[in-house]
Design a protein around this nucleic acid. Structure first.
Lengths: 120, 120
DNA sequence: CGGCATCCCTAATGATACTG
DNA sequence: CAGTATCATTAGGGATGCCG
């Protein structure tokens, strides 16, 4: 048994199977603009332009890509106004909210790690 | 308050502060070979060559880099034999084991996500 | 054996301009 | 406003060879 007892199975071969879904998560939330978008949307729904203003440094190209990826993964949904189709709103889905627990744990570990690294 | 209630603070400005440690985690475990190395070492300590054999496709350059990064972050430690300095062993530190809970949660979310994506 | 140095390639990101 | 298209740049990673 591996030392990462929860993570590891009983054989090295199984490791690959365990790694894959973890990679998936990294691929989903690891993009440069993914977390800024998610946190902005968790605060409240936003229009494209609003997001671009709020997320410092993002270009329309990258914002568009990030939103599209998040939408494909079901974490964010797009809502086009029926009266005025130039008004588009992005919102976090309830599924997107399910990332919360994970992000909190990542953050906790990260905060602790920063302290640790600084003091060494 | 944001919808990611645990993750978000009360203002958008605070988001950046919350994001940074999460990014740290992604930067640490998000490298292409990081997880393979960690899981291999969680199984048991390994010599450089052993790791290279066990981790399919990794070059000595990339393995070296991954190990160095993990060592810098205190997750892995290197042990050079006193009698024979050509014998080097890498092992997971107890701090490295602290990643377990996080990796398990990531994996759980990732497994669920795969199922979800496939069935849609 | 345990790496490092060098060169090369691709994917990711950025800058800028443009459009329905 | 909400993007797309095109071009330029950069970072991550791979191939190969060499060294103590």
């Amino acid at each position: 048994m591996g030392i990462l007892s929860g993570f590891l199975g009983s054989t090295p071969d199984e490791c690959k199977v365990f790694i894959r879904p973890v990679r998936d998560v990294i691929d989903i939330v690891g993009g440069k603009w993914t977390l800024p978008v998610l946190t902005a949307l968790s605060f409240k729904s936003h229009r494209f332009k609003e997001l671009q203003v709020q997320i410092e440094g993002v270009t329309s190209r990258m914002l568009s890509k990030a939103l599209k990826d998040l939408e494909l993964n079901g974490l964010v949904e797009k809502e086009v106004s029926l009266e005025n189709t130039t008004i588009v709103k992005y919102k976090l889905t309830s599924y997107g909210e399910s990332l919360d627990e994970l992000l909190v744990l990542m953050r906790t570990w990260g905060v602790n790690h920063r302290e640790r690294i600084m003091t060494i």
